[in-house]
Amino acid sequence: MTEMAGQDILAEVLQRNSSLFQSPRETQETKDLPEGIQTCVEASTVQVFKTMCGIDLTRNERIDGRCDAFNFDASGIVTITGATQATVAVRFPKQLALACTNALLGKTSDRIDEEVVDVIGEIANMVVGGAKERFAAPNLTLGLPLVVTGSGHRVLMPPQVNILSSLFSSASGDCIVEIGIKPSADSRE
């Protein structure tokens, strides 16, 4: 049995962080911009789906605003409070939610049950946690993951929020990540 020395543990984590964040890590100049947050969330989304579920997501396009063109069956939502106020919603079609659950738990299901809801919440939490690390802004607090299920449900953010949508495709279906960001002048507390 091998035990790692403290400096080895730290070196390994820092090495992991540097390879994870080498691109795109936001610069001080760009990180206050909504696009900076969007880039961080997109990179984290791709990484979480790949590493946790073995699912390759391809980002197809960005939409400035909501994307109502698709019906989704489940949404994992995590809020960010602090110097930046934002809400991130990872929106899943049933097929993709089931594929993630199968990859993570080895469980085959034909409906969105409790375990699928758990997986959606966990994925949303990791996506936003990873984005927060990439964004590297101090004093950001993540809210508790909220999962909404139901065919064709809609999750909306208030009108004063700028919404950026990123559309992804995969062999198991398409998904959308919506980021609602309150303009920074109003969000400072």
């Binding site: 035990e3 790692m4 730290l10 390994e12 979480v48 590493t51 946790m52």
Partner: peptide, 19 residues
Amino acid sequence: RVIEAIQAGVTDYLCKPFE
């Protein structure tokens, strides 16, 4: 945070998400 865990006596560390 990692340093805090090391000082508390953690043996190893794995960041989520992980493969």
